[in-house]
């Protein structure tokens, strides 16, 4: 399982490194969203720094959707399921590999976005430990839950509309928790944040476990 996971993750990341879709399109898209939010809300810096954490996570979530969609499009588009099944790789391994690759891409994106938020929204970073733990748990949660739904939508004619419909409600608590935890960290009131961080870890654990168990059968549907 771990060997297969490493193989798949390595392959996916290599594809992304070669195609540069992430660097050329997803990252600019994410930064653009930050700018658009600033237009929509108010250029007033107080407003922006107050809503910064929320906007950051909304942006991560939308970019995450793109990353998940890409993750299955690269599997020879509509034959995604066939290609993965024929590979003979372990279902749980494929899940961990794909989710891992998505998480790695999101982590990079988060660093860029964090810079964007600091520069554009005048947010000052406090409580680095809590911020890091929040990012870690939320990223793993988004990647895991997203990958489970990604394979369901993969290869379907309606995948582009189905995936957000399935994923966004499931991720609603992640968005809430991550935004609140970051707010607490930035406000210097970590006591308010820890329950949220714990909730994020619970979410991540549940969906990673669920993916490991369910991905094989989902892939296998003939």
């Amino acid at each position: 399982m771990w060997r297969d996971a490493a193989l798949v993750a390595g392959k996916d990341l290599r594809v992304e490194a070669r195609s540069r879709v992430g660097v050329n399109q997803v990252v600019p898209f994410a930064l653009l969203v930050l700018v658009v939010f600033a237009f929509a809300l108010d250029s007033d810096r107080d407003t922006l720094s107050a809503v910064g954490p929320g906007l950051f996570w909304v942006t991560v979530m939308f970019s995450g959707l793109l990353a998940i969609q890409r993750s299955f499009v690269i599997e020879s588009d509509d034959d995604a399921r066939d290609a993965l099944r024929l590979s003979g790789l372990d279902g749980a391994g494929i899940f961990l590999g794909k989710a891992g690759a998505v998480a790695a891409q999101l982590a990079v994106l988060e660093v860029v976005l964090a810079l964007g938020v600091v520069v554009l929204y005048d947010v000052h970073l406090h409580g680095p430990v809590m911020l890091l733990l929040t990012c870690l748990a939320a990223t793993v949660g988004v990647a895991a839950a997203g990958t489970v739904y990604g394979i369901i939508a993969a290869g379907l004619r309606v995948r582009d509309t189905l995936l957000p419909l399935l994923v966004l409600p499931v991720l609603a608590p992640v968005l809430l928790a991550a935004a609140r935890a970051c707010e607490a960290a930035l406000a210097g009131t970590p006591a308010d944040g820890w329950p949220w961080v714990r909730l994020l870890f619970v979410f991540a654990t549940i969906y990673v476990t669920f993916g490991v168990v369910a991905f094989g059968p989902l892939l296998e549907e003939a």
Binding site: P169, V170, A172, L199, V202, F203, I206, A214, P217, L218
Partner: peptide, 18 residues
Amino acid sequence: AIVAIAAFLDVPIVHQSV
């Protein structure tokens, strides 16, 4: 069936977070 269970797993987390 798998989607139903995935959704159900989310219910307590949604409830708690909200």
